[in-house]
Design a protein around this nucleic acid. Structure first.
Length: 291
DNA sequence: ACCCTCACCTGCACGC
DNA sequence: TGCGTGCAGGTGAGGG
């Protein structure tokens, strides 16, 4: 159920333990996880690849791999260049998690992919609801890949400016809450941080995007960055290498509106309300977030 | 081009 | 104890 801060946290945790390791074998236990590719092809492609880096694009985790080039010679030249720089793009969706297990740790339920590493440990992808996806791509194709090309600019990058946000909002008649969840418009927020950003900005989730004033747009832009940054800084991992790692639930204590229906607003004491927008819960303070 | 609804899954908390 | 309902931090396909 991660949003951008949780994904960033997973990326950092992964980076610490898997960069420099080589994947000696893989095991795909849920075929649909990897899309059209067969588990056999997947394994042939990723086997003996060294993990050179872990990064992120939006909520996608990017595990960068380098295959050895020594068999490259005649055969691959005849068949055209075989790309040795690979990216394993992983989206956790609602319940995806990575575990870093010792050789004799039992595989937990819903373990859908296992990567055997050269240090006798296993990197395991586990996903109760099976919504998560994993795609093995040539690195050169990553930014042409459907689902990734369409993504909005990174919220902490230079392209995500007030003017960018203003432009996006101006062209939409949707409500702000719905628009903030659209990763092709604003990147990184999910249901929690969208609610939290709107609350911090004092803006109603029902405001029509195109009608948001210029000052409020600037305010919202700031709060989107702040709430995501605050979360990145405050999530402290429950990282236990022996048991695996995941993002922690400790962050709940910082929620000001999300999942607080009926509780008093931290600013004014008014009861926080909940309703459904686009099939998802929206929480807001009716007094602090009038328009 | 846009936007809405539904579908994809399992599990948990709740009321009867 | 069980069973039915609604809900869960995400997104994509398919339709209007």
């Amino acid at each position: 159920m991660p949003e951008l801060p949780e994904v960033e946290h997973v990326v950092r945790a992964l980076r610490r333990v898997v960069v420099g390791r080589t994947i000696v074998a893989s095991e795909i236990r849920l075929r649909k996880l990897i899309g059209e590719m067969s588990p056999t092809t997947f394994d042939r492609k990723i086997r003996n690849a060294a993990i050179t880096g872990v990064s992120r694009r939006g909520k996608f985790i990017l595990i960068e791999c380098q295959k050895p080039d020594r068999q490259g010679g005649q055969r691959s030249r005849a068949k055209g260049r075989v790309e040795t720089h690979l990216v394993l793009a992983v989206h956790l969706r609602m319940t995806g998690k990575f575990l870093y297990l010792a050789a004799d740790d039992e595989l937990p339920k819903h373990s859908h992919a296992v990567f055997y590493l050269d240090n006798d440990r296993r990197l395991v992808f586990r996903d109760q609801r099976q919504f998560g996806i994993m795609r093995l791509l040539p690195a050169s194709k990553l930014h042409q890949t459907k689902g990734i090309v369409e993504l909005a600019p990174e919220p902490f990058g230079d392209e995500f400016t007030i003017d960018y946000l203003r432009d996006v909002l101006k062209r939409s008649e949707r409500t702000l809450k719905t628009l903030l969840l659209d990763q092709t418009k604003v990147l990184g927020l999910g249901n929690i941080y969208a609610a939290e950003a709107l609350f911090r900005a004092g803006i109603s989730p029902f405001t029509i995007a195109a009608k948001l004033s210029k000052p409020k747009t600037a305010r919202l832009h700031g709060e989107i960055r702040d709430v995501l940054g605050f979360a990145v800084d405050h999530i402290r991992g429950s990282i236990k290498l022996e048991q695996g790692f995941s993002y922690g639930a400790a962050f709940e204590s910082f929620w000001q509106v999300y999942d607080r229906e009926g509780e008093p607003c931290v600013n004014c004491g008014t009861k926080i309300r909940r309703t459904t927008q686009g099939g998802r819960s929206t929480y807001w303070c009716p007094k602090c977030q009038r328009k």
